[in-house]
Nucleic acid binder design. Structure first.
Lengths: 228, 228
DNA sequence: GGCGAACCGTACCGTACGGTACGCATCCGT
DNA sequence: ACGGATGCGTACCGTACGGTACGGTTCGCC
């Protein structure tokens, strides 16, 4: 039965077998616990009960493993499409609050933080990567593409639905989303990336989300939406 | 004459001689060009024309060198105190715009980005650093303390001056500053940390700053300040 | 002029990690 | 039942880096 299941799983997610996904899960755990330095080929092999040879067969080299970790984790986030029809004022507000909380939850997740740290740590300012080293901002691109852009699309569709319903007013949806993002996140993400305990910040998430949505509606709401 | 000059320089900035500052400058250049991996003890010694032995004598070990780099660079930022008296509506708006531009300039600076990447890369989620390794979120703390908090103080004093002049209305200055920060920066900082070309974003800085200030005044301005 | 401190350049050591090769078990298809 | 593939465990290699030690040189000071 294995072949059928494995091929199905391979088709389901970015071209990896279940075994490989289990390995990636172990690698992610190592990354979360010990940072990038802890993700050694030998360490991953030991933690996942597989051989280094298999690692190199599956992922090519260490960079391939790191990329696969990001792709794998990014593939997990399922962007819940919001049904935009029949959007009322209170419904929009609730959807915005839910989005704000989801965003803060995602950004404060241990795995998300660890992967962002990893991608940022790999990033190099100048156009470095002389020769074959082509993994310059690749990981960063991957994260941005699969993470931020996905969740951003959910927000922009919601915003555009609000505009279509005559509840919001803006010219550029992306710009409005940027404002919403800034109001929600401020510098919380960066502070968590720098080591600030997420648990401490999580206690303020609800209030922070409410205030952000209220401010956003003050800026972009139409008529009664712009109340406090 | 050296002793007098060196001791004067040592007193001037965080306890380092001019020679050591030159070394730190070389190390920063290496960091900006090649990322953390490029900052090897041998590489710094070669770039700065000093011996590894001196490096270890001055900075203890590699972590001490990295910390010294952050402290040294942080010591450079001189927070220009704003004279808050006689604050008019137009003056406040100009000060806010200037602050927004300064903030974006600082955050998009190559050295700032490299140091943030360094500190983030060193950060570890769980309470790791078993044994003697005590440099967990230390670098992050250093950056936050000397960087963000400094520039934040400038903003909060400005905001409080605006409130004292009856131009702004808010309860918590830190919260208002957080909103201002979010409106200005949004996710530009993170995107640059992930490798997005700062030059591309810099072109939008002026417009971004203006919009952020306008939004902020809409939210917190009193009376005529809240106009578009 | 000679002494000592600071320092440079280099050589050296131990280790840890990326990557490769080999031997053996397991399991699948024929 | 057999052959081949897959993969685990381990041993191995080369390298690169952190950290230390040593010889030689400059320079200030007695």
């Amino acid at each position: 039965m294995q072949i059928v299941d494995e091929s199905a799983a391979r088709a389901e997610r970015g071209g990896s077998t279940e075994r490989q996904n289990a390995v990636l899960e172990s690698a992610l755990k190592l990354l979360v616990d010990g940072g990038e330095k802890a993700v050694t080929t030998a360490g991953v092999a030991r933690a996942a009960n597989c051989s280094k040879e298999s690692l190199y067969k599956w992922f090519g080299d260490r960079d391939g493993l790191l990329s696969a970790m990001i792709s794998y984790q990014a593939g997990k986030v399922r962007t819940v499409e919001v049904r935009a029809e029949t959007l009322t004022a209170e419904g929009l507000r609730k959807h915005l609050s839910a989005f704000a909380l989801d965003l803060l939850d995602v950004l404060s997740g241990e795995v998300s933080l660890a992967l962002n740290r990893l991608a940022i740590g790999q990033t190099v300012g100048k156009a470095a990567g002389r020769g074959g080293r082509g993994s310059g901002p690749m990981l960063g691109r991957l994260l941005e593409e699969r993470g931020r852009r996905q969740i951003g699309r959910r927000a922009t569709t919601l915003l555009e639905a609000g505009r279509a319903a005559g509840l919001l007013s803006f010219d550029d949806a992306d710009e409005a989303y940027g404002t919403l993002y800034g109001l929600i996140v401020t510098d919380a993400h960066l502070r968590m990336l720098l080591g600030f305990d997420p648990a401490t910040l999580k206690k303020e998430f609800a209030g922070r989300a409410e205030r952000a949505v209220a401010s956003f509606l003050t800026l972009y709401g139409v008529g009664a939406m712009a109340d406090a």
